[in-house]
Amino acid sequence: MTALLPPPDPALARTGALLAIRGVSHAYGPAPRSVSALAGIDLALRSGEFVSIIGPTGCGKSTLLRIAGGLLPPTLGAVSIDGAAPDEARLHKRIGSVFQDPALLPWLNVRGNIELMARVNRRHGPRTIDTDALLTSVGLSDAAEMRPHQLSGGMRQRAALARAFALEPALLLMDEPFAALDEITREAMRYELLRIWERRQATVLFVTHSVREAVALSDRVIVLAGTPGQLRADVPIDLPRPRRHEDERSLPFLDLVDRLRALL
């Protein structure tokens, strides 16, 4: 198991997890002066599970996400997505991603940005995208022909969300997607994301700095800490679904938030 990413590890494939991360460590830079970012991470996500990662800044959350998506080969360890290597999953367009920056192409309108997902690497993945249905589900049906600069920050992130769901990905990787939004929009986006996720059945790995956000969204919250980052805790969130904004005032919710805060 080297940086070259071997064919999927049969043991990993057999776990039945949609995303399996085993023994992953990562160090940036060449050997003597390398910066160790992650050490010995083991993590498995069941199909359809929503898992959040929280942890102090610099503990390697983004690094872990990049490794999970096959954008960065780990120094040690292996990843499998639905039984295949991450590169294989990328090739077949099984991964959707949303970052803090919506990263829309400014010369394309919203529709063009979403449909681009089918045009790039066109031999794989769905040929056609039901853009109108996607835009309706993120509340952007009137903005299809608008360019990114004509949209508000929240609308841009909604478009990025629609783009991430466009190829019906098995795995959705989200790195602080709502961090740049104002608090009201941010809270509304949580429940919009949940509604889309419940309908479209993706497995989600979600990085955030907000404990409330993690609890509101997730089936499980992973706490990552230290340099290099290690798993500190794995807390199940047994709150009923579908969840609503009002539930954030319930006692069990506040209790979980307090418990996680204590772990940070």
């Binding site: 990049r66 998506g69 096959g70 954008l71 590169d87 990328r90 090739l91 367009k93 991964i95 959707g96 991603s97 970052f99 803090q100 920056d101 990263a103 192409l105 010369w107 681009l116 997902m117 045009r119 790039v120 690497n121 794989h124 993945g125 783009r163 190829l167 990787l173």
Partner: peptide, 26 residues
């Protein structure tokens, strides 16, 4: 090229030519 836009392209396995034509040149 903004790194996140590049990452979106890489996550769907865009070829070097596609990144050049649809991302770098514009």
């Amino acid at each position: 090229v903004p790194p996140d836009a590049h990452a979106v392209f890489r996550s769907i396995h865009a070829s070097t030519a596609e990144v050049l034509w649809r991302l770098r040149l514009p």
